[in-house]
Amino acid sequence: MDKINLDQADSNFRKELASQPGGETISACFTCRTCTASCPITAVNDKFNPLRIIRMALYGLKEEVLTSDFIWLCSSCYACQERCPQGVSITEFMTLLKNLAVKEGNMPTGIRVQRDTIKGEGRIYPIDDFDNKKRAKVALPPIPTSCNVVEKLFPPVRN
């Protein structure tokens, strides 16, 4: 992996993160690597490294972090957060980074499709008549095939 390049650092990023849920505790990180050692993703692919992401964020590498592919590899399993001796909410922090990346227009297609399906249909796997037929065959009750309340919860202006 390339060396971290500090020329692009944004000194305000650290403060911006500290003021949002999930970002309040990251400056407590003392680089012990317990997060990385506990991570099931790092174990199979070292492109994802929670400690490195925390350090990059603290150094102010905003653009590099928020346009990266690797933040999306966090499986939100909480192994790191549960074990962090400094009480850093690492999983919540990864969620914050992903949310900020989306606000800047960066997200994997799969995640975009999930979001749009849920906001449009109220379910990640919308139910159709065929599903209900299979359910009826084993005496399970039908599930609604449409959802109107999402229009009220998420009026077009939010999307």
Partner: peptide, 20 residues
């Protein structure tokens, strides 16, 4: 019948909407 998605799969992209 009126229950909808819990919001979990949207937490990564839109935390607030997931909470709603």
């Amino acid at each position: 019948e009126e229950f909808i998605c819990c919001g979990f799969p949207m937490k990564a992209s839109d935390y607030k909407s997931a909470e709603i």
